[in-house]
Amino acid sequence: MEEPLSLQKCAERLERRGFRSFVVSGLKEAADLMRGLVRELSPASASYGDSMTLKATGILDELNASPDIQFYDGFVPGMDREEKWEIRRRGMTADLFLTGINAVSMKGTLHWVDMVGNRVAPVAFGPRNVILLAGANKLVATPEEARERIRRIAPLNARRHEDFKTPCMYTGTCADCNSPDRLCNIHMSIVKCFPKGRIAVILMEESGGL
């Protein structure tokens, strides 16, 4: 019999794998928790990876407005691509990095897909601390289902970029394509947090993002 999905049980398993883990009800509670973590960690610098759920909390605007934090924002509309990439490179050595997760398994594993790597590389190494936010819609039973979820959402993510042209934008199905605009170039999984406690995972009872 398949185990029912449970954010609380998933959080317990994440803790056993060395992550700090929290379960909150919604965006407001997630934002309050992140503010508390920022106060606790006292970062001198911060950056982030693109995440609709993270943006919806308002925490990024607060970090950007803080006079005590150097905020590296490589997603400013209209900014030249090379300038964006340079800022994202600086963000890889910030004290604090925040982003979302594409899928979380009940085994306590985290899974992503990325185009360039600027979102996943700082999670794996670089910033002293990482805060991740995921809605309940990201929770799946197994790592195998996490990878399948990523294949299903790839077309939806592609459609967020109006100037991109990938097969999945038109068919709605991942074709493992060779398009110049392919978004799913880099796949990353984290099965244990090292050093222990470096990564904080916030699981939200509401759905969030794709």
Rank of each mutant, 00 (worst) to 15 (best):
Asn102Tyr: 01
Lys165Gln: 13
Met1Asn: 12
Met92Lys: 00
Leu27Trp: 09
Asn178Phe: 12
Leu132Gln: 00
Met52Asn: 13
Leu5Val: 05
Asp32Cys: 12
Tyr170Pro: 04
Ile199Ala: 10
Arg149Met: 04
Arg160His: 07
Leu37Ser: 07
Asp95Asn: 11
Leu5Met: 04
Leu139Ile: 04
Leu139Pro: 03
Lys28Glu: 14
Asp163Gln: 12
Glu145Thr: 07
Thr93Asp: 12
Gly58Ile: 10
Pro167Trp: 11
Gly49Ala: 10
Asp73Ala: 05
Val201Cys: 08
Ile202Arg: 06
Met79Val: 02
Glu148Ser: 11
Glu82Arg: 06
Asn118Ser: 03
Asp50Pro: 09
Pro167Ile: 08
Gln70Asn: 11
Met52Arg: 15
Ser42Val: 11
Asn129Arg: 15
Asp32Asn: 15
Ala121Leu: 12
Val104Gln: 03
Phe71Glu: 02
Ala30Asp: 10
Asp80Glu: 12
Phe22Gln: 11
Thr53Gly: 12
Val113Leu: 14
Met169His: 04
Gly100Val: 01
Asp163Glu: 15
Ser25Met: 12
Glu83Thr: 15
Val116Thr: 14
Asn102Val: 01
Met204Val: 15
Ser42Asn: 14
Val23Asp: 05
Thr93Ala: 13
Gly209Glu: 13
Lys84His: 10
His111Glu: 11
Asp80Tyr: 06
Leu133Gly: 06
Ile190Glu: 10
Pro122Trp: 07
Met204Tyr: 09
Asn178Ser: 14
Val104Thr: 01
Met1Gly: 13
Ile101Gly: 01
Asn157Cys: 00
Thr166Ile: 03
Thr173Met: 14
Ile69Val: 15
Ser47Leu: 06
Glu82Leu: 08
Pro195Trp: 02
Ser6Tyr: 11
Leu54Asp: 08
Glu15Lys: 15
Arg147Ser: 11
Phe97Ala: 04
Ser45Pro: 01
Gly18Trp: 06
Lys55Gly: 02
Asp114Arg: 00
Phe22Ile: 05
Pro77Glu: 01
Gly78Lys: 03
Ile101Pro: 05
Asp61Ile: 08
Met92Trp: 02
Gly108Trp: 01
Gln8Trp: 11
Tyr72Asp: 02
Asn137Trp: 04
Cys10Pro: 03
Glu206Arg: 08
Ser45Cys: 04
Ala103Val: 01
Arg149His: 08
Ile199Val: 12
Met169Ser: 01
Arg90Ser: 05
Met1His: 14
Val76Ser: 02
Gly117Cys: 04
Leu203Ala: 09
Cys177Glu: 04
Lys196Phe: 14
Ala11Pro: 01
Asn129Pro: 01
Arg149Tyr: 09
Ser47Glu: 03
Val113His: 14
Val116Ile: 13
Leu60Phe: 03
His187Cys: 05
Leu110Ile: 05
Cys177Thr: 05
Val120Glu: 02
Leu133Gln: 06
Ile131Met: 09
Gly100Phe: 08
Ser47Asp: 07
Ile59Asp: 01
Thr173Val: 15
Met34Pro: 10
Ile202Gln: 07
Leu7Ile: 06
Phe75Met: 03
Ser21Met: 06
Asn129Lys: 15
Gln8Glu: 14
Leu63Gln: 06
Asn157Tyr: 11
Asp68Gln: 14
Gly18Met: 07
Asp50Trp: 13
Ala56Gly: 09
Ala121Cys: 00
Arg39Pro: 10
Pro4Met: 08
Gly100Lys: 00
